[in-house]
């Protein structure tokens, strides 16, 4: 009965799951693209000799060339430079707003699922109500209230996705709170805070994180849409959405102005979704292994 070691090998944890996601072909390509874009955004000043707001009017409407790999826009600004700086805006606005959304949504959802009662009914009703409107509508209303700009966009995106995270967390917590280990913790004297923060939320985290990852892709589109309407980051700060907006009037004269930012949005969102799928698959494997007795 004495086995060589009582401890069998561990299932992959957080980093192991990431590694497994990168191990799949689609995950590797998508993940690699995302890493590239994030690095490009971070090191933008080192990667390009131009400034994003340097207007050289005599060089306007240049097609892609060696000097300007992605061409120039109607003010003669280097498009690649603006794309790299635009990635900063798009990525940071969408990820920060999703982060806010997850934090607030999880708190509301966890409290609603755990305590139930009137608070639960109120949170669920509001979440259902906001979920019945398209995100873009909620975002437009909020931007109209707060005003255009980066902070307005962030608030709009955060609120637009709040219901999704609140509902998901609530459902997770409601299943988890019936688990035996929660009863065990309670039978050993644990209070509400301990059970919520030490047991329930850590166990509910994985699906919420995956869903947050996928929502970040949607948020990039929402941010670009608001930018396209001129409600996002204000000029001269570049964002992919506002670049597409100015390019839309010049679609036939200088198609590269709208095509490249559009491609950036599309490939980034596809990459996020593919990587999210790879993450789900990696987590799924862990679930299956974990369910073995």
């Amino acid at each position: 009965m004495t086995a060589p070691s009582p401890v069998s090998s561990a299932l992959p944890g957080g980093l192991g799951v990431l590694r497994a996601a990168f191990g799949r072909p689609s995950g590797a390509i998508a993940g690699g693209w995302l890493v590239l874009i994030v690095l490009g955004a971070i090191f933008a000043p080192l990667l390009t000799p131009y400034a994003y707001d340097a207007q050289v009017l005599k060089e306007a409407f240049q097609p892609p060339s060696l000097a300007h790999p992605l061409g120039t826009d109607e003010f003669g600004r280097d498009l690649l430079t603006r794309m790299l700086y635009g990635a900063r805006t798009s990525l940071s606005v969408s990820s920060v707003s999703i982060l806010i959304s997850v934090a607030a949504g999880m708190t509301l959802g966890a409290a609603a699922g755990y305590f139930g009662g009137f608070f639960d009914r109120a949170v669920t009703a509001v979440a259902d109500l906001t979920w019945s409107f398209p995100e873009i509508l909620i975002a437009l209303i909020l931007v109209a209230i707060i005003g255009p700009g980066v902070s307005g966009t962030m608030a709009a995106i955060a609120v637009a996705y709040l219901a999704q995270f609140a509902r998901l967390t609530r459902a997770q917590i409601m299943t988890l709170k019936a688990e035996t280990y929660v009863e065990a913790a309670r039978s050993l004297g644990a209070g509400h805070a301990h059970i919520l923060f030490r047991h329930l939320i850590p166990n509910a985290l994985a699906p919420v994180l995956v869903s947050a990852m996928l929502a970040t892709g949607d948020a990039i589109i929402l941010e670009a849409t608001l930018g396209f309407f001129g409600l996002g980051a204000q000029p001269p700060t570049p964002s992919w959405g506002s670049m597409m907006s100015s390019g839309s009037a010049l679609l036939f004269k200088a198609p590269w102005i709208i095509v490249f930012p559009g491609l950036a949005v599309a490939t980034t969102v596809i990459a996020i979704n593919l990587f999210g799928d790879a993450l789900i698959a990696a987590l799924d494997i862990r679930d299956k292994l974990g369910s073995k007795p």
Binding site: E179, T180, Y181, E183, A184, A185, S187, L188, R198, H199, P202, N203, G290, P293
Partner: peptide
């Protein structure tokens, strides 16, 4: 008062 639960398979938090 210490309490020993019925099913040890589920009485421990899987992520701790």
């Amino acid at each position: 008062i210490g309490f020993v639960m019925q099913n040890p398979m589920t009485a421990l938090d899987p992520v701790q």
